[in-house]
Amino acid sequence: MPSAVGVVTFPGSLDDRDVMQAVSLAGGTAVPLWHGDSDLRGVDAIVLPGGFSYGDYLRCGAIARFAPVMVEVVAAAGRGMPVLGICNGFQVLCESHLLPGALLRNAGLHYVCRDQALRVESTATAWTTGLEPGARIVAPVKHGEGRYTADTETLDRLEGEGRVVVRYVEGNPNGSLRDIAGITNEAGNVVGLMPHPEHACDPLVGASADGLALFASVLTAVVGAA
């Protein structure tokens, strides 16, 4: 039986169905999870998808953090379950203190949608084992609040511990400090990404096929752990 990846739908989640399709393409079983339920339905890994959860009112991800399902997500992450936050999901992970730092309004003040070149900096996370270290991959960014920000000490620690997962190359779309596009926690099971791997799984409808490896990685990781 294929491994089950839960995809959380908050009110205002937009890329939830897209992530479920990507999970299926990678050979996994996608399981919908509802923001109001305190039930992870037995999944092996969790994705918090992009969108505008709760309208992004107050601050991106600030309200989603208090959703009943997030209590379970935080607990599962603590037990080592792989968790990936994409775009708004990354913002939710930061608000939930599963990842350090914050994502601020883009430096150019505009929403930016473009095919973005990235460099793979860490393959030591549950979500990136299938990628090549140093590889250039392409995935779309599409956000208005993606400027990764943290204090210097945190940034130095992330760099020193190899916790920068991907970095923007050939142009920084949002003014992120040190061109950071994605980071992981100390254990390497929780990853936040501003680029959208689910929109880089099929060149017909995405920017490339480079993102499929992330979903394949986690399926390998959970099978290995089982």
């Binding site: 169905r17 897209d18 017909l204």
Partner: peptide
């Protein structure tokens, strides 16, 4: 203009 619009969401944009 168009870079301010999401063209990927729903995964059906060819």
């Amino acid at each position: 203009v168009t870079d301010q619009y999401d063209r990927y969401v729903l995964r059906d944009t060819v």
